[in-house]
Amino acid sequence: MKTVAPIKIYHAEPLDGTLFFVAQSSTYQPASLEDCELVLYHDLYKDAKQVGKFLKQISEKYKPLGKKVLIFVMLDDESDYGHFDNLILLRVSARASKLRDHEIILPYLWEGREEPYPLSPKSELPVIGFCGLLSKHRKKLVNVFLKSKQVSSDFLVRKKFWGGKPHDKSLINEFFDNIENTQFTLSNRGAGNFSMRFYQVLSCGRIPVLVNTNMLLPFSDKIAWNEILIFEDDAKTCLQRTLQIHEQGLTQELQLKCRQVYDDFLSPTVYFSQLIAEIKHRSLLQVHQTEKNKNSFSGLASHLYKKLFKA
């Protein structure tokens, strides 16, 4: 990727460990509130009950300063949060048709593999994996593949999210073993309109299979997603596309491309630079002020900069 110039960022409190990818990025340059180009909320926001109130408070706090605020929202919620001129929202879950101009899809950047698995060996039938909770958005896709005699299925169905034990090492190992030992992994959405598994599968160098549920995948203007994985409008078409890839002998080639996309756009080492490049390309850093407010802004900002602000 092209080198992205560093951006001056202010955050009132130390960055939470979940945002480690920001501090590690060469694009990140700490700055004072007065000198910064962008304010960053220091933590992943996870309180679904208070999200509307929280966004309004942050917007009102920084609007007099003419600063844009970047907020990472980690919620299953697909609701419309409303329009905020001075906020840039990164959200994992949203409906593509309702995404606002100041909102960007946040990929799931955690729990990916640093190195991909070796390429899957060739096989007579395409080998399909799935390990997880059989929620309502996954049942049809799983059943279509399970009933097909044209694929080899390796499915481990859980009764609860992560088997009810999210930190159990044996369950985590079974999850990733299932991905490693198959060529394709069913990766439909869960409670939110996104898939953690989708990004984990890419990091493993395997091919995700998912139904498009009015979902926008990240960096869609730069990544030809439909050319490297299976992202179709219904379960039967997903099966047909899987069979087509296998028959054409493209499985290993697409596995390499899936990992390459992860390395170029989604790994923690490059993601923040790609995000800032997109923000600049979309001119989201620009703060629009009316002529009426411009003269009064300078004096007000000087006064407020002297106070302690906490994002």
Rank of each mutant, 00 (worst) to 15 (best):
T3Y: 07
V4E: 14
A12T: 08
A12H: 01
A12D: 05
P14W: 01
L15C: 08
D16Y: 02
Q24W: 06
S25I: 07
A31H: 11
L33A: 12
L33H: 00
Y41Q: 14
Y45R: 07
K56C: 10
Q57W: 03
I58D: 02
S59W: 00
S59D: 14
K61C: 00
P64N: 06
P64F: 07
G66C: 09
K67R: 11
V69D: 05
I71D: 00
D77F: 02
D80R: 04
G82I: 05
G82C: 06
D85S: 15
L87S: 01
L89D: 07
V92W: 10
L99E: 13
L99P: 11
L99K: 15
D101I: 13
I104H: 09
L106C: 12
W110Q: 11
E111Q: 11
P118K: 09
L119Q: 12
P121A: 05
V127I: 15
I128L: 01
G129M: 05
F130C: 08
C131A: 15
C131S: 13
L133E: 12
L134D: 10
L134H: 06
H137G: 13
H137P: 05
V142A: 12
L146Q: 15
K149V: 15
K149R: 13
Q150P: 05
V151P: 00
S153N: 14
S153P: 05
S153R: 11
D154T: 07
R158Y: 03
K159A: 09
K159N: 05
F161H: 08
G163F: 07
S170G: 05
S170E: 14
L171R: 10
F176D: 00
F176Q: 01
E180T: 07
Q183G: 09
G190T: 12
A191R: 01
M196S: 12
R206P: 04
I207Y: 04
P208K: 05
L210I: 13
N212V: 04
M215N: 12
P218W: 11
F219D: 08
F219S: 02
S220L: 04
D221Y: 03
I228L: 11
I228E: 00
L229E: 00
L229I: 04
E232R: 04
D233F: 09
D233G: 11
R241Y: 13
Q252G: 01
L254C: 06
L254N: 09
Q255S: 08
L256C: 07
K257S: 13
R259W: 12
Q260D: 15
D264I: 00
F265S: 11
L266P: 01
S267N: 13
P268D: 11
S273V: 03
L275Q: 14
L275M: 07
A277D: 13
E278I: 12
E278G: 13
I279D: 00
H281W: 10
L284S: 02
L284A: 10
L285V: 11
V287N: 06
T290N: 14
N293D: 15
N295L: 06
F297T: 14
G299K: 03
L308T: 15
F309E: 05
A311H: 02
